[in-house]
Design a protein around this nucleic acid. Structure first.
Length: 163
DNA sequence: GCCAACGTTGGC
DNA sequence: GCCAACGTTGGC
């Protein structure tokens, strides 16, 4: 990790794929398939680099929270679920020769001792402008500033050390 | 190219 | 389950 390293956050509904599922995956690694939003796709396809750290967020959860940390272990490749007719994210406009959707591979790095709930995150001044906390924010893959990333890790460590 | 209708996301 | 916010689609 150097000064140009980018930091990220991915959202997932734990009922669909949780951080526990990532821990249990082969090599604790998974392909981040199923993203069907152009802006999120562009971040994965164009900007996520090998080694970039990624905050792992559970949405529609009880409670919704940042639950851990992962890392980009493979840069973008076409998402094969996009041309799989039997996949719930099938897109007839995407083909192997002309793929429309992309994915990166993420490897588990850490599960926080205690989840950083939305309510907690909203109380951290350094995160006041975080994309995740913006009203109406729906991006499932988003950049996190270096300062925000550091603040999240610092808070995670503080929470882990408290009762 | 506008924009209304519709589908989805996700906090609550 | 509700519904606000947002992205996408398609008629014109």
């Amino acid at each position: 990790m150097n000064d140009t390293t980018k930091h990220w956050l991915v959202k997932t509904e734990p009922e669909a794929f949780s951080i526990g599922d990532l821990v249990r995956a082969k090599n604790k690694t998974t392909s981040w398939t199923g993203v069907r939003n152009y802006q999120a796709r562009n971040y994965m396809r164009d900007e996520m680099q090998l080694g970039d750290p990624v905050l792992f967020y559970h949405s529609n959860a009880e409670p919704s929270a940042i639950v851990g940390l992962a890392r980009v272990v493979k840069e973008s490749q076409p998402d094969p679920t996009s041309w799989d007719e039997h996949d719930s994210h099938y897109d007839p406009k995407s083909t192997p020769l002309n793929p429309r959707w992309f994915m990166v591979d993420l490897q588990w790095e850490e599960t926080f001792a205690r989840p950083l709930t939305l309510a907690m995150l909203r109380e951290i001044p350094a995160l006041a402008h975080m994309e995740l906390l913006r009203k109406g924010s729906r991006l499932s893959v988003m950049p996190v500033s270096k300062g925000e990333f550091a603040a999240v890790l610092k808070f995670a460590a503080k929470l882990a050390g408290s009762k």
